[in-house]
Design a protein around this nucleic acid. Structure first.
Lengths: 364, 364
DNA sequence: TTGTAAGCGTTATCAA
DNA sequence: TTGATAACGCTTACAA
């Protein structure tokens, strides 16, 4: 085949029609007689013609492309959301261009620039921190924007988030009702609003049961999380239960416990976060707070589509509810055989201080 | 700000220079006096100007965009590869457009059409089966193509794969040296060449130790995999060891064993596939065959870049080696306390027949 | 070093 | 229903 430079002109010439007609056959914007259309299609496929999106986009201003920026492509929560968005987008004839901000604000900003130069019809962004890149305040007038998951400023654009405080509450309430009163909250990064909220929700609930919590900041990789958490565990009396505040810290908690041969459930009760196949591929399947991933993706796409279709209403802040998937990693306190003799309170004499029912100070 | 229709003309007008100069400032293709360039940049940012990629691409024919098609965005192996490719691409100024074929050949073909109409400079594809969509044989003359992971026809384009037979061999050899002779091979889909190869590699090695293997086809989701495997386990004598042939089947194996309260390692030895954080977040950390993900991504990008730079040499087939990450899920046969009394051979009387050292027939 | 102007492939307008 | 033609915003000869 030739140099892949088959244009609408070549097709038009071959069939003996105008370029406009060929264009209309493919865009469907104006009716073309079936017979003619068939001829055009035939000629096009013989020549190996493909519409040139760039030309089409330049002329029409329409683009059918949506930019997606996420903080971490290695985080299965984000990829599971992306996966569904991609599928929804495809149904509406949109293509996805993807960028990873790698949890860095500078990256986020530069990647955004790059994506925006494609003049996408829409932008879906999961910010990596509470502070949004400045382009979002200036450069995005023409384009539809939906923010998700980590959204500090809900007045800027539509946002899809979960009820994070309640997510914390759900986990805490369940543990408290099982009799737990000393609960360790394992956060990734307290600079992230949803994490703070989850922590706060759990703290308040535990306080309501006259229990105490402590929040540890474990970072956003399972490896360093396990290490930080391990250090803390080695220096402090153990809690009877732990709540991991996202998927990464869930892994950190489990790794840390595994290294120390502490049994999940019977040793220390654990409530994890999110829902992944590995959570049931264990001797003690993990009880976890589940985010409604399909609804999150759907809401994101619906909002974006509305905006792309010209919806000019004020920003909507959609908040979705989480639920608790009860499996076997959290047990009633009386069933705790290994640890519950050795502490009823955290040991306050140790290096790291206890902050019951307060926004936990990070431990480094 | 205005209707985001700030063009190079507006900038040129504001500064009082020609559009060519503005273009050169941003593209850097021709030198522009520093002083002037600074003025242009200033004006551009004041006006909120952004290059219009579509126009630029249309005129220059250069595109700086790479299409990526993978079979499953929920599979962490693929996302970990994508993640690295995205980062490499970014360094070279390329954007990634992403599509998910969802393990369907029709999808693969239609998604490919959509992506190709962007006239990307390159295409990276992880095929979902051995049969490649026909466009790859015709439509891609101008564009650079690299195939990865599942590549049946290595003469069509550059390919990056792993030595799949050896991957199977590595796992099998390790287990055999621990004394195992009855090994169950858990495949996802034997229609996928690499999976067949892994299976074959393991079979041959075990046969060399005078052991026997059986290959079960578990499908490509952990859930149905666990179920199929479970059914088989309930009807057949248990092997002393299992090898999971990819990440999904690793989960299937572990789930199945967990449901049946069979201890990993002491009950049945397990060698998994790939490397993920959850593998060490377990009481018995998982021994697994590791694919060299960073090298895979790097090789893919290097080949693609070479092609995009005009390399016309014959297709290269790059094959990378796997390694075994030894942890604790495979134990010497003598340490098997639960099961090794009850079988030394598979029970051939049961419904599912044994196919020692043969390409296992799928079980449905 | 900078300016002028043509043209990339498509779609939109207007006329037939 | 179809055709002719201008225009989208940019890059690139070529001229100055």
């Amino acid at each position: 085949m030739g140099k892949s430079t088959v244009s609408i002109k070549d097709v038009a010439a071959k069939v003996g029609v105008s370029t406009a007609t060929v264009s209309n056959v493919f865009s469907g914007k104006k009716p073309v007689k079936d017979e003619l259309a068939a001829k055009v299609r035939k000629a096009a496929s013989e020549l190996g013609y493909q519409v040139n999106r760039a030309a089409s986009m330049l002329r029409s201003g329409e683009n059918k492309i949506v930019a997606v920026v996420v903080p971490d492509l290695a985080d299965p929560f984000f990829t599971s959301v992306i996966r569904q968005i991609e599928s929804l987008a495809k149904q509406d004839g949109f293509e996805i261009i993807l960028a990873n901000s790698d949890n860095s604000v500078e990256n986020e900003s530069s990647r955004l620039d790059a994506l925006l130069s494609w003049q996408p019809a829409g932008l879906i962004m999961i910010p990596c921190t509470d502070v949004l890149p400045k382009q979002l305040h200036t450069d995005v007038d023409g384009i539809a924007v939906v923010l998700a998951d980590r959204v500090a400023d809900k007045d800027l654009a539509d946002s899809i988030t979960i009820d994070n405080a309640d997510a914390g509450n759900i986990a805490a309430k369940y543990l408290c009702e099982l009799g737990h009163r000393n609960i360790l909250l394992v956060a990734s990064d307290c600079g992230i609003e949803p994490i703070r909220e989850r922590s706060r929700g759990a703290e308040e609930t535990v306080a309501g049961f006259s229990g105490s919590t402590f929040t540890i900041e474990a970072g956003s990789s399972p490896e360093i999380g396990a290490e930080r958490l391990g250090k803390w565990m080695d220096r402090n009396a153990h809690p009877t239960a732990m709540i991991a505040l996202n998927d990464m810290t869930t892994l950190a908690v489990l790794s840390c416990l595994a290294e120390r041969k502490i049994e999940v459930g019977t040793g220390i009760s654990v409530v994890g976060f999110d829902d992944y196949p590995w959570m049931i591929a264990r001797r003690t399947p993990l009880t976890a707070v589940q985010q409604p991933v399909p609804q999150i993706a759907l809401s994101i796409w619906q909002r974006l589509r509305a905006r792309m279709n010209g919806d000019k209403s004020p920003p909507q802040a959609i908040e979705l509810e989480c639920s608790l998937k009860v499996r076997e990693s959290a047990k009633p306190i009386s069933a705790n055989t290994e640890n519950n003799t050795m502490q009823s309170e955290f040991d306050e004499s140790l290096t790291v201080s206890i902050v019951p029912s307060a926004r936990g100070k990070p431990i480094h």
